[in-house]
Simulated scan of single mutants.
Amino acid sequence: MVTAATRTRDLLWSDIEDVYAAILDHPFLAGLADGSLPREAFRHYVVQDSHYLRGYARALAVCAAKAPDERGTTLFAAGAGNAVAAEQGMHAGLLDGLGTTAEAAAAEPIAPTTQAYLSYLLATAYGGSFPEALGAVLPCYWIYARVGAELVTRGSPDPLYATWIAAYGGEAFQAVVDSVLELTDRVGAGLAPTELAAMRRHFATTARYEWMFWDAGYRRETWPV
């Protein structure tokens, strides 16, 4: 039941508990933890994530422009810069460990799920209100932090996979996510029911895209025709 004391973050998470459970059960993440994930599946994922992060940075920049106060603008402007830095830094290191380069990865085609996710994300960010844009970008922050925290407890025998886990399971990333969640609660508290419903809809949709993104990596998804 929704009450006046219900935080927006709790309401949003209640909508995707089953999605998050499916994410944790996915063999891609299980394979990261136990080291059994084929390197080619991880390579596919990292290449597509490099494509994704470039588009995600643009969505965060739009959020920065639409934010209702300076704190929100500063938060998302920094987030946009950090997304680009992650693509250029951590991903470059992962790609090197996978026997390829960032330049070669950038030349590879964007897979169907990556294209669909980015199209939805950018359309919502550009065409929707700030709460709608916030709802759309939030799962990538929040779910990765939750997954990272879970996988840190399991560890990984594969050094490359352990590097990825540490990046998202660390305190620095969690601190950023906490700031976004605080903003979510602050913004959500003043929304009309129709505005909150739109925010929830976008949040649930991109949470499903998160599952689809890992699944696409596991399957090494390509265009069928």
Rank of each mutant, 00 (worst) to 15 (best):
M1G: 12
R208N: 09
R39V: 11
R54N: 08
T100C: 05
V177G: 02
T153Q: 15
Y56M: 03
A83D: 08
G217A: 11
L94E: 05
R200M: 10
D96C: 09
R220Q: 15
L75Y: 10
R201M: 05
C63P: 02
F76G: 01
P193S: 12
V2S: 12
R39Y: 03
E150N: 13
V187L: 08
E150V: 07
R43T: 01
F42T: 07
P193M: 11
A61H: 03
V19K: 04
G81Y: 07
H26F: 05
Y120M: 04
L75A: 01
A21F: 10
L134H: 07
I110G: 02
F173I: 04
T222G: 06
H202V: 06
G97V: 09
G79A: 15
Q174M: 07
A104F: 08
P139A: 00
L122Y: 10
A21S: 14
H202N: 11
S179E: 15
A192I: 08
A172K: 13
A5L: 13
A111T: 01
D178S: 12
C63F: 05
L95C: 03
E87H: 12
H51F: 08
A145F: 11
Y168L: 06
E103L: 08
A67H: 09
T222W: 01
T3N: 02
R39W: 07
D215A: 14
I110S: 06
V147D: 11
W164S: 07
L98S: 00
A102Q: 14
A149C: 09
Q48D: 05
T101P: 00
G217R: 08
A5P: 00
R154I: 06
S50I: 08
A216R: 01
H51G: 01
G190V: 04
A104P: 00
L11R: 14
C63V: 04
R200N: 00
G99Q: 11
F130C: 04
T6C: 06
I110C: 09
A204E: 06
A189P: 00
A216I: 03
A83W: 07
Y20V: 14
T222L: 07
